[in-house]
C-alpha cells in the first residue's frame, strides 16, 4: 500500500507537498488504532486498573494521569475519585494536579488533534499568521473542539523544532517549515472517515 501511495503522490501531488502527504499517511494509520477517536465512552475499571498498577511508584499521580490520558485521550472528571481512592489522596489533590498541567484534557478531544506552536522562534517565521490561517481553515479557535468533533486545536509553547520553524503537530506527527499551503495539503490527506 505504501509503495502505491508513494507513486500516486509522486504523479498527482505538487512536489513540495509530497513529503508532507507521506508523513500524514503514516500518522493516519496511527489514528485508526486510537480507540478514543470516535467515542467518549470509557471504562471505569480500566482507570482503576491503571491506578492499581502504578500506585507503588514514588510520586505516582503524574504517571497515572498520563497513562489515563494516553488510554482514553482525556481525563474525565469521574476519574478523580477513582484515582484518589487507589492512591490514598484527597479528591482535591487529584483535581489540583489534573487542572494544573496544560497537557491534561478534561473534555474529550476531536477525532483529529492539531497543535500549533505559538512561541518566539515560530513567531519569527510567520507563526502568527500561520496560526490565524489554521484557525480559519479548521473553523476552530485555540483550546476548542469543533462542534462536529472533527478537530481539536491546541496551542503549544515550543516543540523543540525551532530550527525548522514554524512547527505544527497533526495527530502526533511533527511537521516543520509549515506554510499555509503545506498545512492545507497535510489536512487534505487526512482520512475522510475521521473528518
Amino acid at each position: 500500500m505504501t509503495a502505491k501511495f508513494v507513486w500516486m503522490t509522486l504523479v498527482l501531488g505538487r512536489e513540495q507537498d509530497i513529503q508532507f502527504g507521506l508523513l500524514l499517511a503514516a500518522s493516519q494509520k496511527w489514528t485508526h488504532r486510537v480507540p478514543w477517536m470516535s467515542t467518549t465512552r470509557w471504562d471505569k475499571a480500566k482507570v482503576a486498573a491503571i491506578a492499581q498498577e502504578l500506585k507503588d511508584k514514588p510520586g505516582a499521580l503524574m504517571p497515572v494521569l498520563r497513562r489515563v490520558q494516553d488510554e482514553l485521550g482525556w481525563v474525565p472528571a469521574e476519574c478523580v475519585p477513582i484515582v484518589a481512592e487507589v492512591l490514598n489522596l484527597s479528591r482535591a489533590e487529584v483535581h489540583g494536579v489534573l487542572s494544573f498541567y496544560h497537557d491534561f484534557r478534561r473534555d474529550p478531544p476531536g477525532r483529529n488533534i492539531i497543535k500549533v506552536c505559538r512561541a518566539e522562534s515560530c513567531q519569527a517565521m510567520g507563526g502568527v499568521s500561520l496560526a490565524e490561517h489554521i484557525k480559519r481553515r479548521l473553523g476552530c479557535d485555540f483550546g476548542h473542539t469543533r462542534g462536529d468533533g472533527s478537530f481539536t486545536l491546541e496551542p503549544v509553547y515550543c516543540l523543540g523544532n525551532c530550527a525548522c520553524s514554524p512547527a505544527v503537530v497533526i495527530n502526533g506527527q511533527l511537521l516543520g517549515r509549515v506554510t499555509p499551503e503545506r498545512f492545507d495539503a497535510a489536512i487534505s490527506e487526512l482520512d475522510e472517515n475521521l473528518l
Binding site: 510520586g59 505516582a60 499521580l61 503524574m62 504517571p63 498541567y101 496544560h102 503549544v156
Partner: peptide, 25 residues
Amino acid sequence: VRMGAGAYICGEETAMLESLEGKRG
C-alpha cells in the same frame, strides 16, 4: 524517565521536584 505534562514552570528545579512527587508544579 518521567514525563512532564506541558507546564513550562516545571523546568524550574523546585517545581520539577514537586511534579516528580506527583503534585502541582
